[in-house]
Amino acid sequence: MSVALPAPDMTRAITRIAHEILERNLGSETVTLLGIPTRGAHLALRIAAAIESIAGAPVECGTLDITMHRDDLRLRAPRALAPTRIPPSGIENRNVVLIDDVLFSGRTIRAALDALGEVGRPKTVQLAVLVDRGHRQLPIRADYVGKNLPTSPQQIIKVHLVETDGADEVLLEEVAG
Rank of each mutant, 00 (worst) to 15 (best):
M1T: 09
M1K: 11
V3M: 04
V3A: 03
A7N: 08
P8S: 07
P8A: 05
P8H: 04
D9C: 03
M10F: 11
R12S: 14
R12W: 12
A18Q: 06
H19F: 14
H19R: 14
I21S: 09
L26M: 15
G27R: 07
T30D: 14
I36Y: 01
L43I: 14
L43P: 01
A50T: 11
I51R: 01
I54R: 06
I54K: 08
I54M: 11
I54P: 01
A55D: 15
A57W: 06
C61P: 01
G62A: 12
T63K: 01
I66Q: 05
T67S: 14
H69V: 05
R70W: 12
L75G: 08
L75C: 07
L75D: 15
R79N: 04
A80P: 13
L81V: 15
R85I: 13
P87R: 07
P88Y: 06
S89Q: 11
E92V: 12
V97D: 00
D100H: 00
D100G: 00
V102T: 04
S105P: 02
S105Q: 08
G106W: 02
R107G: 10
T108P: 05
T108H: 06
A111M: 08
A111C: 12
A112G: 09
L113F: 07
E118K: 12
E118G: 14
G120F: 05
G120H: 08
L127C: 11
A128C: 07
V129E: 02
V131N: 02
R136L: 10
L138R: 13
I140F: 03
A142P: 02
V145H: 08
K147F: 04
N148W: 08
N148F: 13
P150M: 04
T151E: 02
S152F: 03
I156A: 04
I157F: 03
H160R: 15
E163F: 14
D165S: 13
G166H: 13
A167V: 15
E169P: 01
A176T: 13
